[in-house]
């Protein structure tokens, strides 16, 4: 079942002197349960495309449909709620809330979604155990390594069972061992939880793990390879 449809999407940035065509007519679909990587060199439009998929940015032209909804048509407040209930985010620099513990960070989205307390606690514990940090429930981000923080970010993104997870360069700040662990965990969660993962990356280790690789260059899809 198609979960994400990208139809002839363009994104043009107008700066004072020049016009930048960051995404130039991209059309690509993603199905439920995919573990896909969008790759390409710097400036190829990966992050811009990911931002548009995540509803953080709007296409200049074209349409993105997420589970039959066009986020560009939603009002600002509806769009935030739409993101809350449908999309999980994993960022390059983890972006955990530094004053909260691992447990509180993972709970955060479920809290916003008003999950009942016991259900929230159970899910948080389950997710932290799934990312191998069941014993670090009360640690604050500053007490954890980069790899551990990113695993918590993954747990946070998945805990509320979104339709898909967008991960922007999730391994860029990690060493190879942490990258490997993180990728294994994400792959396992993808299989077990049936949640679609879309990465933007130029990390070859991620590309190797991905079951589908969409390559961008100059804002265009130059290849779409399934393994």
């Amino acid at each position: 079942m198609k979960i994400l449809e990208i139809k002839n999407v363009h994104k043009i940035y107008n700066s004072t002197h020049i016009q930048v065509h960051a995404v130039n007519g991209v059309s690509v679909d993603f199905k439920e349960g995919e573990f896909a990587a969008i790759v390409g060199p710097s400036g190829s439009g990966k992050t811009t495309l990911l931002n548009m998929i995540g509803g953080l940015d709007k296409p200049t032209e074209g349409k993105i449909m997420i589970a039959r909804t066009d986020p560009a048509q939603l009002k600002s407040s509806e769009l935030i709620d739409f993101r809350l209930n449908n999309i999980g985010f994993v960022f390059q620099s983890y972006n955990l809330i530094p004053v909260l513990t691992a447990r509180e960070n993972v709970e955060f989205i479920m809290n916003l979604q008003k999950w009942p307390k016991n259900k929230r606690f159970k899910r948080t514990k389950e997710m932290l155990e799934a990312v191998g940090l069941g014993d670090r429930l009360d640690s604050k981000p500053a007490q954890l390594s980069g790899g551990q923080q990113q695993r918590i970010a993954v747990a946070r993104a998945l805990a509320s069972k979104p339709k898909f997870v967008l991960a922007d360069e999730p391994t860029a700040n990690l060493d190879s061992k942490s990258t490997e662990t993180l990728l294994d965990i994400m792959e396992e969660l993808n299989r077990n939880e049936k949640i679609t993962f879309i990465f933007s990356t130029h990390d070859t280790r991620v590309v190797k793990k991905a079951r589908r690789v969409v390559t961008l260059e100059d804002g265009k899809v130059i290849s779409d390879e399934r393994k």
């Binding site: 600002s76 993101r83 809350l84 209930n85 960022f91 989205i109 916003l112």
Partner: peptide
């Protein structure tokens, strides 16, 4: 700024 951007991105609405 970055953290507030992240909070909005993950679904924390303006009221919150």
């Amino acid at each position: 700024t970055k953290e507030l951007g992240m909070l909005t991105a993950i679904g924390m609405n303006k009221k919150r």
